[in-house]
Amino acid sequence: MKAEEISWVKSPEFGVMDQIFLPAIFTGMVTTLTHMGNTLFSSKDVVTQQFPEQRPNLPANYRGVHRLNRDDEGRVKCVACYMCSTACPAHCIDIVAAPSPWPDREKYPEVFVIDELRCIYCGMCEQACPVDAIELTTLYDLTGHSREEMIFNKEKLLSVFDKTVAMGTDPVRTTHGRLGVASEPASRGVTGSSSMQT
C-alpha cells in the first residue's frame, strides 16, 4: 500500500457529555422508544409477515421446486438428452430414455425422477437444458411425510407445471426470458429442430 492511498479517518472528539454517558444513553433511549411507539400506534413500519396466512411475493427467478414443461400439444418437452443430469452437482436427476413415439424427436424420457431432498436448488439443470424443458419454480414450501414422497417422478413434475401455470407464477424464462431455439412454438418447430442439427 502506498502512502497516498491511505486516507486518514479521525474519530469524533469526545466531549464532556459523551464522557459521562448518560446523555448519550438518553438519546439512545429516545430512538428505542420511537421505534416502540411507531410499532405500537401505527403498524406501517412493521416488517413482520404473518407467514401461513400471508405468502411472500417471490421474484420469478426464485429457485424452488422443479417442473417439467409441456409443449403446445401437452406432451413432455424433454428430449432425454441427459444434459441436466450430467450438469447436476448433487446427482439427483435420474432419466431413462426411450425411443420417442412422436416424429419430431428421437428420444423422450420414459422415467424422469428428481430426488428433491438431494437437490441443492442450484439451477444448473435449468441452464443446461437445450429445450427449456426443466425449470425451477417459485414453490418453496416443499413438505412430505416420507423420503419416498419427496422423490418426484415425471407425472409429479408435470403436475407442478400444470399447477404453476394455473397459479400464473411461471418462472422467469417462460414469462419474459429469452427461450432457447429448440423451444420455439410448434408451428416453427421444424426450423427449430433443423437449427439444432446444424
Binding site: 421505534h35 416502540m36 411507531n38 410499532t39 416488517v47 413482520t48 404473518q50
Partner: peptide, 10 residues
C-alpha cells in the same frame, strides 16, 4: 413483545 416492538416486529 418489547423486543419485537423495538425492532419493528409484531
Amino acid at each position: 413483545k418489547i423486543s419485537a416492538w423495538v425492532q419493528d416486529r409484531v
